[in-house]
């Protein structure tokens, strides 16, 4: 088994998991489950194909199963609670804490797409393959994620009313 090459991808899997799940411990649980599953299913990986893309697919499948299970019920419940965000600045430097809160409130499927595009910098086609959804679905989730993020950051104001301060 290519343990070495899998090791090379662990930092990126951890980054994605942290962004997806939030707290460090749960994120590393997700990575650990992913690595164990990847090792079990390693014979399904086609040698020579993109190992990173395959690992992200495995992580997506593990994540989806977890979201379905009771383990994430609490998080889902929290997401339903409306949070009033106070926007302090609207310069190019967005308040990072606000960005994180807005991210947490995205539906999981939108969060996945946004993170794979923005943080992992995958192409839309790669995201489509990793999540096993049509590219049109990738684009609509991306669009909704960006709009929800913007609305949360802006306190619900429409985009045109945003002003660049300073």
């Amino acid at each position: 088994m290519e343990a070495h090459s899998i090791i090379d991808h662990i930092p990126r899997l951890r980054r994605y998991a942290r962004a997806l799940v939030g707290d460090r411990h749960s994120a590393d649980d997700l990575v650990q489950d992913t690595l164990e599953r990847a090792c079990n299913k390693f014979h399904l990986w086609r040698a020579g194909s993109d190992l990173r893309a395959w690992l992200f697919t495995v992580m997506h499948n593990v994540f989806v199963n977890q979201v379905r299970s009771a383990r994430y019920q609490l998080e889902q419940a929290v997401e339903e609670v409306p949070v009033v965000l106070v926007r302090e600045t609207q310069g190019d430097a967005l308040e990072l804490a606000e960005v994180e809160r807005a991210l947490r409130r995205l539906p999981a499927e939108q969060r996945e797409v946004l993170l794979l595009v923005a943080v992992e910098q995958m192409s839309y086609a790669e995201v489509s393959r990793a999540l096993s959804v049509p590219i049109g679905t990738v684009m609509s989730r991306l669009s909704r994620a960006r709009e929800r993020m913007r609305a949360a950051m802006a306190g619900g104001n429409p985009a045109v009313s945003l002003k660049v301060v300073k």
């Binding site: 980054r15 962004a19 913007r150 950051m153």
Partner: peptide, 23 residues
């Protein structure tokens, strides 16, 4: 303006989570 907001989202997300790579 929308492009600027989206680009700022991308940048903020990377700023938030890139440090995980160095842990």
């Amino acid at each position: 303006e929308q492009m600027r907001v989206w680009a700022a989202q991308n940048a903020a997300l990377r700023t938030l989570y890139d440090p995980v790579l160095k842990e």
